[in-house]
Amino acid sequence: MKNTEEILQALKENFPDFSFELKSDLPVEGFIICNPLVIDKISHFLHDNPELNFDSLINLSGVDEIKANQLSVYYHLESTELKHKLVLKVVTDRNSPEVASVTDIWKGANWHEREAYDMFGIKFLNHPDLRRILMPYDWEAGHPLRKDYENPEFYQGMKVPF
């Protein structure tokens, strides 16, 4: 069982070139901010290292931080054997959001990433099947959970607003 600081230490030792930042001033849990394009390498390490052994991705959520003109993704990881948890965050640009996919490592990430793509338009590089998941495949009005999203008046001849 390790806490976030110890895990950060292990990450820094293993990846001296990458930047990590621990943020723990806000309630309730601290999280580590890392680079979106190497999140797959970091995840591989977290998953394979026997002392960390993060075998399960519990949650993956996209967030639109419109004030800072960026999109971010939160990863909630857990080890079912060692019973410790970790929150990772990556930040990407709002106009060309690109994040490395972690589907290879945790298969369960597949639909979570598709959902983040559907709702926010975050592109997951190397994702096997990046399509819309909840909205219709032919939805043209953009990504609904973005804060500046506007709903269309009609979809396939059906009036959408009340």
Partner: peptide, 23 residues
């Protein structure tokens, strides 16, 4: 009116782990 921050709370629902990630 909570302070700025985020939380992940979870329970064991009949179908498995139900979690809420609230910012």
């Amino acid at each position: 009116k909570p302070n700025a921050g985020h939380v992940y709370g979870r329970v064991e629902n009949p179908r498995g782990e139900l979690g809420y990630f609230i910012i």
